[in-house]
Each structure stands twice: as structure tokens, then as C-alpha cells.
Design a protein around this nucleic acid. Structure first.
Length: 136
DNA sequence: GCCAACGTTGGC
DNA sequence: GCCAACGTTGGC
């Protein structure tokens, strides 16, 4: 299984909204790198859900439930969407500051390329995030 | 609200 | 195909 990190601005689509919707389609990606990552996603892959701008923290875990298909919100076949559903909310959110201050996480796309809205996460990194969220 | 970083566009 | 200009994102 592969791990990912997906970003959303809470005022656009927050984790709470996601929880009450039960699932959502992840659209609106207009960046080739992020798009390529979306295309790599497989059903069952886990995603860290990150709030950008407001909060700047990882708030929960989501699971891919449908692989990429053309983005329904735009008439342009270049862009794709995937479907995801929430798995669980983190016990404690993991902030960007925490991620940055942990030397084991300094290779994360989140740190190295803060503008990338969909990035891969290594299993080790995922586990470290889990650990941080437990120890809060 | 500012600015740095980065991706994209378009002129040559 | 290069590179400057421009737009967007996101941290601060």
C-alpha cells in the first residue's frame, strides 16, 4: 500500500465537512505533479489530510475508494479526480511546525515543496506522523 | 497583506 | 528550446 498527503484549505473543504459527507471526490488539482500523484493512487491507499493556510496541520486519515477519473468539475481531460473517504481523525493533530522540527521528516514533499497539493508519503514517514499524533 | 518559491506561458 | 514575465500558492 502507498501513502499520500492531500491538502485542502479548511475554508474550502474542511475535515469536518469531509466527516459529515462520509466521502468526497478530490478535484480541483491544476498542477501536473499533483495530477500525476493522483493518477498513482490506488484503491485502499491511505492519505494524510492536511489543512493548509488555516491550521497548517495534519488532521486525519483518508482512504482512496475510487481511482482517478476525469475531473467532473472541468471540461478538460488533462485533469483528474479521485474519491476518498475518511478513516479516522487523529487523536492529536500534527502541525507543520512539528513535521519541520522532526529531522526524520525533512524529506517529505510537504516540507520540501510546500506548494504541492498532493504528494507521496513514505511508510516510515506515515508511521512517524502516527507516532506524533499519539504522543501529541 | 507580504513575499518567496515555483509552475506555466509566451515571445523570440 | 530558452528564458523572462506572470500568476498562484501558502507560510509567515
Amino acid at each position: 500500500m502507498q501513502y499520500w498527503l492531500i491538502k485542502s484549505e479548511p475554508f474550502k473543504y474542511s475535515w469536518d465537512q469531509f466527516l459529515s459527507d462520509k466521502s468526497t471526490f478530490w478535484d480541483g488539482v491544476r498542477n501536473y505533479q499533483a495530477r500525476n500523484n493522483l493518477k498513482e493512487m490506488k484503491v485502499g491507499d491511505h492519505c494524510l489530510y492536511y489543512h493548509s493556510n488555516e491550521g497548517k496541520e495534519i488532521v486525519g486519515i483518508a482512504e482512496v475508494i475510487k481511482e482517478h477519473y476525469p475531473d467532473p468539475t472541468i471540461d478538460d481531460e488533462r485533469w483528474v479526480a479521485v474519491d476518498v473517504k475518511p478513516i479516522r481523525t487523529l487523536k492529536n493533530t500534527v502541525t507543520l511546525a512539528q513535521v519541520k522540527s522532526d529531522a526524520r521528516l525533512d524529506q517529505m514533499a510537504l516540507v520540501r515543496n510546500s506548494r504541492l497539493s498532493v504528494g507521496p508519503v513514505k511508510e516510515d514517514e506515515f508511521n512517524i506522523i502516527m507516532e506524533l499524533s499519539e504522543n501529541g
